[in-house]
Design a protein around this nucleic acid. Structure first.
Lengths: 90, 90
DNA sequence: ACAAATTATAGCATATGTGCTATAATATTT
DNA sequence: AAATATTATAGCACATATGCTATAATTTGT
């Protein structure tokens, strides 16, 4: 067994898709006239987390998005109302 | 500072919503006539992960769902075509 | 009933999402 | 321009998602 046989576990961070989701989130939040802080309060998610999502710093979990959708009072299909780009793993 | 001041960080696992997503995923996968293994292969996600999602063992990330949607060749709005229950934190 | 295929579970290692808190950077208002 | 509000960053601790591999359990087909 060679020493430098590091197996590259390729994890997932779908930047393209996450950017679109972030955009959609910002749009809806603006429509509703909510600040990140207000949304954070209503969704019971931290402000930092909202910001991290909108700036595409993280790859949020589905449950997090669920809470946000509820707080925004929009159906999930609204938040996910965009077309996924074909996929490029960078 | 009291000793037993353990701050209960309440994390998120939206069982109700995740169940609905799992149901939707199983439905679509069946429609397309794909096995978990085949879907795993096409989406480049592990079989175990697909199974964990369908059995609501985990709270997947958005990127994971994106990959699945691509592999199923359905729009996100299709995978998320269900209504979120009001929210109960257990 | 048996074999084969499919689905579910399990355990480990690693990467990372989230909460929490504070602060910096930017935008908005007066 | 100064004050205020909003958004973005940062670092830490902890929980957990994911990959990987193997195996068990279940379903399907013969």
């Amino acid at each position: 067994m060679k020493k430098n046989d590091i197996k590259p576990r390729k994890l997932i961070f779908d930047k393209e898709g996450l950017q679109l989701l972030a955009k959609r989130l910002k749009e809806i939040r603006a429509e509703k006239g909510l600040s990140q802080e207000e949304l954070a309060y209503r969704s019971e998610i931290t402000l930092s987390q909202i910001a991290r999502i909108e700036t595409v710093k993280i790859n949020p979990t589905v449950s997090t998005i669920f809470k946000i959708a509820r707080a925004l009072e929009v159906p999930l299909s609204d938040l996910f109302n965009f077309e996924l780009p074909p996929f490029s793993n960078e």
